[in-house]
Amino acid sequence: MKRWMKILGMAFLCVWATPTAFGQEDLLKLAQADDTLQTDKVTATFKTTRLINGHSVETNGAGTLLFLISHRFGTLNSGAYNFWGLDQSTIRLALEYGVTDRFTLGVGRSSLEKTFDGFLKYKLLQQQTNGFPVTVTAFTSAALKTLEWPDEEKAYVFAHRLTYAYQLLIARKFSERFSLQVAPTMVHRNLVETGFGEPNVYAVGAGGRFKLSKRTSFNAEYFYLLEGASDQFENSLSLGFDIETGGHVFQLMFTNSQGMIEKFFIPRNAGGWSSGDIYFGFNISRVFNLGKDKRDW
């Protein structure tokens, strides 16, 4: 009996003593379970606002101004005389401003057909860990061609200079390294310059990135033209490489698209990869912070 009591007593003592022995571990477990950040935003699906030619789901943060220089050389198959394309160039200069963290507007000017463009971009939904699976951004742009008409006698009106693009960008960051994007797109042309084809061009874009290191990634992008427009033009295929260095992102790419806005790189590609109509090019972006510090700590 005595012995039995002693054992029971010891057992109770043991039970009593354990909580202090595991104090810090237990407390930390409690603390981590109590985290208020169960679901949080998935950010940095892509390095910058472009995948390669097309827009990515990324928008600029509030008060951030992004200066984007895009440059494409001539085609690789243009021969030694043209130094395999390096003699020629088309360029687009653009400014993009983040009005809020979700809403970005931008303006640009392309040397190709002396085109001005403006766009609006709004992040509708953001991917969350343990929550919504994708980020969705709506994009719309208008482009104004200012190149003089080749034939002044024809009855052109101002509206003929305008082209519109509408895009829904849907992307998912599958892992820290791997992100995919799908982009149903419509381009509306007020004037179909070639004389054949529909004013509305429908396409589906798909692309992704694979990070090679923390600051570099390999990107691919493809725009598949849906029936109607694909008869005369090639689908756009681009392969690129991103390098990020703090405030700059450098993007190097090979693409069969010459232009750098939707009206050019979706329905206007004359040549494909098989024929060597490949343009080498780069985008350089730099961010500036203009917004005053409005955050409340």
Binding site: Q24, L27, L28, L30, A31, Q32, D34, D35, T36, L37, D40, K41, N60, G61, A62, T64, G98, D101, G247, V287, N289, D293, R295, W297
Partner: peptide, 15 residues
């Protein structure tokens, strides 16, 4: 003990 969610750090510059 402390548990600090790293993504909750807010910077002035989003980038």
């Amino acid at each position: 003990v402390f548990s600090v969610p790293m993504k909750a750090f807010q910077f002035k510059k989003s980038l």
